[in-house]
Design a protein around this nucleic acid. Structure first.
Length: 200
DNA sequence: CCTGCGATCGTCT
DNA sequence: GACGATCGCAGGA
């Protein structure tokens, strides 16, 4: 079942944990790709020096983070890759969860097409924030997109019985050395033992 | 296995 | 004008 509005109205750290194991669903020209989210990072609003909305910095780019939970925040990084975030919290609280890695569940052929790589290791298809955006064809056209309404992109519960009963590891976030005392906050979360996690 | 490096461009100063 | 919530490749151990 698609996650409802209230699921997202919580702080980014809680949401980052709760999103693990949930299914990200992407419709590309009628073809469905489904991927399980296995690694996330919380970006915790005005206080967090690693967050784009640090000190409530409000620009065209960060505007989506100020939406209520359940919207997307997608931005271009290093001129060539996209990063996909799920906005948390009620309106005006700029917190979001970066999806760092997913595990393909359905539509593997499409994923392989979207990712033309030499590596034959399956995990290299989606074990990174830029990689999974390529794999699921997520770019800025899906920024500021309502995950609770649209059909192009949404999140659903896995039907499995393991309702979030994963062993969850928390660790430092990746590549935010500039964030001073927030650099080492344990706000990255991943499913223990999962092969698609980008870094352990 | 690991480290270093270049690619590439929208966004903000 | 500078830079980045990254990636893939090359080269060495």
């Amino acid at each position: 079942m698609r996650l409802s509005l209230d699921f997202y109205q919580k702080d980014a750290i809680t949401l980052a944990r709760d999103l693990l194991g949930k299914y990200l669903v992407r419709n590309i020209d009628g073809e469905e790709v489904i991927a399980k989210m296995v690694e996330t990072e919380a970006y915790v609003g005005p206080e967090d020096k690693a967050c784009h909305a640090y000190q409530n910095k409000r620009t065209k780019r960060t505007e989506a983070m100020f939406k209520r939970g359940g919207y997307t925040y997608v931005y271009l990084i290093y001129g060539m890759y996209n990063c996909f975030n799920v906005v948390a919290d009620p309106k005006e609280k700029p917190e979001a969860v970066l999806i760092r890695a997913v595990e393909p569940i359905k539509g593997l052929e499409i994923v392989k097409q979207n990712r033309s790589i030499k590596s034959k290791r399956k995990q290299d298809l989606t074990n990174g924030p830029g990689k999974l955006c390529q794999a699921l064809d997520i770019d800025k056209s899906l920024n500021d997109y309502d995950l609770t309404n649209g059909n192009n992109l949404y999140i659903k519960d896995s039907k499995r019985r393991n309702k979030g009963n994963y062993d969850i590891i928390s660790d430092r976030r990746i590549n935010i050395d500039y964030a001073e005392e927030y650099r080492d906050k344990p706000w990255r979360f991943y499913i223990k033992g999962n092969n698609f996690v980008s870094k352990r």
